[in-house]
C-alpha cells in the first residue's frame, strides 16, 4: 500500500509542479500578483493622507517589480497604470504623469491602455486645478481616439470645464460646436454605429442646451433610423423613451409630441418588439392616471 500511496502523491505533486512551472510568469500568475498589490494599495487609498511614505514606497517597489517580472505579459501595461495611480494618490502628480506617458509610449498599439493613461493624466490635472492642461489632455484624446467612449464625450467634458471656470461664453460656444460636430458625424455615418452614437450625444447636448424640441426631433430620428436591436438595446431604448416622456411632459408641457413620435414608430415598424411598450405609453399619455388629491 505504501508504494501505491507514494505513487499517488508523486502524481498529484508532479502534475501540480509541472502546471505551476508552465505558469510561473504567465498571465494567471500576473493577475494574482496584480490583484494582491492592488489590495495593498486599496488600503492606502482609503485614507491617502494617513498612510506613511514607507507604505507608498512598498507598493511602488512591488509594482516596479511586477512590471519587470511580467515584461511579456499582456497585463504588464496595467502595471504602469496602477503604478502611476500610486504616485497620483501620493499627490506626486508629475511623477504619476510621467509613468502614464511611459505607458502610452510603450503601448501605442493598445488603445484601451492609452485611453486609461490619458484619462489618468486628465484626472491629475483636474486635481491640480490646472484647467488649460485638462483641456489640452481632452484635445489629445479627441485627436487620437475620437470614437472612444471618452472621445465622444470630449466636447461635453470641455464644456463642463468652462462651466467650472465660469466661462459661460466659451461653454455655450463649445456646446454649439458640439451640436455641429455630432450633427455632421451623424450625417456622414448614416445607418452605422458611429451615426447612432453621434445622434445619442447630439440629443444629450441639446438637452444640456435646453433645446427641447430639437432634442425630441433627434430622438425621433434615432427611433426611426435605428430600429435594429443592435442599436435599440433594452437599456438604450429605456433611456430614449424616458427622455422623450420627460421632455414632452415636463419641459414642452405637450404629451402629443411624445405620442406623435411613438405613433410614427408603430406605423413605420408595425411588427417591432418595442410596439407593445409604445402602445401602453401612448394609452397612458392619452389617459393619464388620476393622481389622488389629499383630503
Amino acid at each position: 500500500m505504501k508504494k501505491t500511496l507514494i505513487l499517488y502523491i508523486e502524481i498529484l505533486v508532479g502534475l501540480g509542479l509541472v502546471l505551476m512551472v508552465f505558469n510561473i510568469n504567465g498571465d494567471y500568475a500576473a493577475e494574482k500578483q496584480l490583484w494582491r498589490i492592488d489590495r495593498e494599495f486599496a488600503t492606502i487609498a482609503q485614507d491617502p493622507k494617513a498612510s506613511p511614505d514607507a507604505a507608498y514606497d512598498r507598493v511602488i517597489k512591488k509594482y516596479e517589480h511586477f512590471i519587470k517580472r511580467f515584461a511579456h505579459s499582456r497585463l504588464q501595461p496595467l502595471g504602469y497604470i496602477f503604478l502611476g495611480r500610486v504616485y497620483s494618490t501620493h499627490q506626486d502628480y508629475r511623477h504619476g504623469r510621467s509613468i502614464f506617458e511611459t505607458a502610452i509610449a510603450r503601448n501605442k498599439d493598445k488603445s484601451t491602455i492609452c485611453l486609461m493613461a490619458l484619462s489618468e493624466i486628465g484626472k491629475t490635472y483636474v486635481l491640480e486645478q490646472n484647467f488649460p492642461k485638462v483641456l489640452e489632455t481632452y484635445d489629445r484624446v479627441f485627436k487620437s481616439y475620437p470614437q472612444s467612449d471618452i472621445g465622444w464625450r470630449v466636447p461635453l467634458l470641455k464644456a463642463s470645464i468652462y462651466s467650472l471656470q465660469k466661462k459661460e461664453d466659451l461653454k455655450q460656444q463649445t456646446l454649439a460646436d458640439a451640436v455641429a460636430y455630432y450633427k455632421s458625424m451623424s450625417q456622414k455615418n448614416k445607418k452605422s454605429l458611429v451615426g447612432f452614437v453621434a445622434l445619442r450625444f447630439l440629443a444629450e447636448t441639446q438637452i444640456i442646451l435646453k433645446q427641447w424640441q430639437d432634442a425630441e426631433d433627434t430622438f425621433r430620428t434615432i427611433l426611426i433610423e435605428y430600429p435594429d436591436p443592435q442599436y435599440l438595446t433594452p437599456s438604450s431604448a429605456a433611456w430614449i423613451l424616458r427622455s422623450v416622456n420627460v421632455i414632452a411632459i415636463n419641459e414642452l408641457k405637450n404629451p402629443q409630441v411624445a405620442m406623435g413620435i411613438y405613433q410614427q414608430f408603430i406605423q413605420t415598424y408595425p411588427r417591432h418588439r418595442l410596439n407593445k411598450t409604445l402602445s401602453v405609453l401612448v394609452d397612458t399619455l392619452k389617459n393619464p392616471p388620476k393622481t389622488k388629491t389629499a383630503k
Binding site: L19, N23, Y28
Partner: peptide, 11 residues
Amino acid sequence: EIFFFSPQFPL
C-alpha cells in the same frame, strides 16, 4: 487539481 489549473495555460 485539473479544475484548479483549468484557467491556466495549457489547460
